[in-house]
């Protein structure tokens, strides 16, 4: 059975392509929200261990925002967005005019706004996946946690830890004229769904 731990290059390319289309959609969605032109660089996709993901995001104790959504329907699994302090700060400044000094100071409205961003970005990727596969995929209401990145990553690690050690991470950079938004997205279809995706795209 297909597993994140033993992806081949062709299978990685399938997800790179889904990532490319998803990021394109996400940039369009962001440009509506931010009322600004948004450019993107080609997203980087990696299949790596949880400890390495923590390190990319500034070490296990670094404080981040984690926005979690579940996929249901013909594909099951979850998505987790991880936003670092600078990006969160910038998004809240643009969206709400909130001057965030500390993460603990994010207001309820700020948290809702971030969940909505997670929702919209997830929709961009799921839209790409759903139209490529011609399958129905729904997203649940987002859940949010503002805490140490290592602690947040325990959740997907535990859910997927029964099948393997690695997870699929997409790093993407969005740019407006003034600022850059860095987002890290974990896309985690369950193994049965992973099989469905790869089969229907001819990668198994």
């Amino acid at each position: 059975m297909a597993n994140y731990d033993n992806f081949n290059e062709f299978q990685l390319d399938v997800f790179r392509e889904i990532g490319n289309i998803g990021s394109g959609n996400a940039a369009t969605a962001l440009s509506y929200i931010l009322k600004d032109k948004v450019n993107i660089t080609v997203p980087v996709l990696e299949v790596i261990g949880v400890n390495e993901i923590s390190n990319i995001l500034g070490g296990p104790e670094n404080q981040v925002v984690g926005i979690l959504l579940s996929m249901t329907g013909q594909i099951n699994g979850m998505l987790l967005f991880l936003l670092e302090k600078e990006t969160t700060h910038m998004l809240l400044n643009i969206l709400l005019n909130e001057d965030m000094q500390k993460f603990e100071d994010i207001s309820e409205i700020g948290l809702s706004a971030l969940m909505e961003i997670g929702n919209i970005l997830s929709g961009s990727y799921i839209g790409a996946l759903s139209s490529l596969l011609n399958l129905e995929i729904r997203l649940t209401i987002p859940k949010i946690s503002v805490d140490m990145v290592g602690a947040i990553l325990n959740y997907p690690a535990a859910i997927f830890g029964e099948m393997g050690e690695k997870l699929m991470l997409i790093e993407e950079n969005f740019f407006t004229d003034e600022s850059s938004i860095k987002s890290h997205l974990l896309i985690m279809p369950e193994l049965e769904s992973l099989e469905v995706i790869l089969k229907s795209l001819g990668a198994i």
Binding site: V50, N51, S54, G59, P60, E61, D147, M148, V149, G150, A151, I152, L153, N154, Y155, A157, A158, G161
Partner: peptide, 23 residues
């Protein structure tokens, strides 16, 4: 100590594990 790992230490050393969530 990383995730899914364990370590032993003797006086005067300290063992630390960062950022436990559901772990």
């Amino acid at each position: 100590v990383g995730i899914s790992d364990l370590k032993v230490a003797k006086d005067p050393d300290t063992i630390i594990s960062y950022a436990l969530g559901s772990c």
